[in-house]
Design a protein around this nucleic acid. Structure first.
Lengths: 258, 258
DNA sequence: ATGTCTTTGTGAACGCGTGCACAAAGATGG
DNA sequence: CCATCTTTGTGCACGCGTTCACAAAGACAT
């Protein structure tokens, strides 16, 4: 996933492993679907299949939360929905601000998944004065001059950054200074934050590049049957006496911008 | 992050660990920035700082690719850009289709990061007949009836799903049947695919829930100083004789839809 | 040529996450 | 009440990923 994975030093938060926390939303989603179909109980095997994980892993994950199952029967769906919601902190209201209302920011503002689970879009913020006052997803965009006031007035602790890469770090700094302690970053930049602030990264470009890697590998393995020489041929290294500006191989293909 | 983490069984692809592959795009981005500033060489320490990782980790990562550094000096920026690009398969052209041109799909189509690194939006596909022919990001939207033909005509092997959750699995099945072997999924669903197909997941809702968990933990630790009783109080379990429809605690707060 | 100094590349230890396999627990039927 | 059967909860082993720490390698000055 996205992925973006892991900025935190894998600090086991109150005994619950980070990997388990990352899977709880998956379980919760599957359980909610069962709940809507009025299914009373579910076995670890069934639920694991619905969530796309190993059943042993699921049972171990739940064991970190407590003994919530009944042997011979399974798990009470409603009860487990509540327990996981509580553990994830979804029984309370989380006001969220989105900074950077471009194409992506607007799409996020319109995303239904926000409102459903305790998350509420408290404000939309953009640096473009022309955007100010214009409603997006029914919420008027506010100018970034008022960022600090917006954060404090609404008691926001979670911020979403959907700005261009260049603006991300300054915006992040202001968010943190204003009291935000969790950031979801969509800008293609590494954010630097003080201790105690959590950052999660969602990066489309990185995900695609990872897919491309595996795609290439699959294609390479397949082609290896036909033509040989797919192995990494020994390439000339940039010698100390070589000119530095030109690519070392002479045929460096299109070093792309940005 | 995105996440999304890990659907593959951690198959070490040609000796390069999955965790390393996931970091290569980060290094590449930092290196590209250095290249634009015409920096000739960079040390592992500097590059690691720019990419937000440990320098030892970076060196080990690069050691999987080969010995591309020069002791006492560092790494040749241009050379490394080329090597990583080649390793990730970015020296070739990857046509991509986006299925589901709603708010998110349109935002993705407009995203600049696509075009820059070998990825090319070959087609936009939507199930809504009213969308057909309408240009988004300069590309006319095509109807999903023609999905198979579009995939095959353009030789597409990477598909992006930005449909509602309900449509995701059927779309996925059709993409795979048409020859797509890598999928980036933005729909909040677990996709089932045959062996040999890679899926990466980007899920806004999950990322927010993970942040909420840590946010709650931070708030709880802070509040523990003032009022006690923040520890998980023993809650009544759903007894076998209890009615099943109602939540076990009697005050299950707003089990949310979807 | 030789010594010094910087930086890489990697062996080794450690910790986390995963999955197996099974004992314990409880439901269910007689 | 007892036997059987299902399913949970978990001890254990294994493998991957991370980090430390250092030897090897090369640049550079003298």
């Amino acid at each position: 996933m996205a992925t973006g994975r892991t900025h935190r030093p894998a600090t086991r938060s109150r005994g619950i492993p980070e990997a388990t926390v990352a899977r709880l939303p998956l379980y919760l989603r599957a359980l909610t679907a069962l709940s809507e179909r009025s299914v009373p109980t579910v076995s670890s095997e069934e639920l694991a299949a619905a969530a796309g994980v190993n059943s042993a892993k699921l049972r171990k994950d739940f064991s970190y939360l407590g003994s919530y199952g009944t042997r011979g029967v399974g798990y009470d769906v409603e009860y487990l929905v509540y327990q996981i919601s509580r553990e994830l902190g979804l029984t309370q209201d989380w006001p969220v601000v989105i900074v950077g209302i471009g194409n992506l920011g607007a799409a996020l503002a319109n995303y239904g998944g926000f409102a459903s689970r305790g998350f509420r879009v408290a404000a939309l913020i953009d640096a473009d004065p022309a955007m100010a006052g214009k409603p997006v997803a029914g919420i008027p965009v506010q100018h970034s001059d008022d960022l600090e006031k917006i954060i404090q007035d609404n008691g926001v602790s979670i911020g979403v950054i959907a700005t261009p890469a260049g603006a991300a770090q300054p915006v992040c700094d202001r968010l943190v200074a204003a009291g935000v302690t969790s950031i979801l970053n969509f800008a293609p930049t590494v954010l630097t934050v003080p201790d105690g602030v959590d950052v999660r990264k969602v990066d489309l470009s990185i995900e695609l590049q990872i897919l491309a890697f595996h795609e290439q590998r699959k294609a390479g393995e397949e082609a290896a049957a036909h033509t040989d020489g797919s192995g990494p041929a020994a390439v000339t290294r940039p010698g100390s006496d070589d000119s530095a500006d030109q690519g070392p191989d002479g045929d460096v293909p299109a070093v792309m911008p940005a």
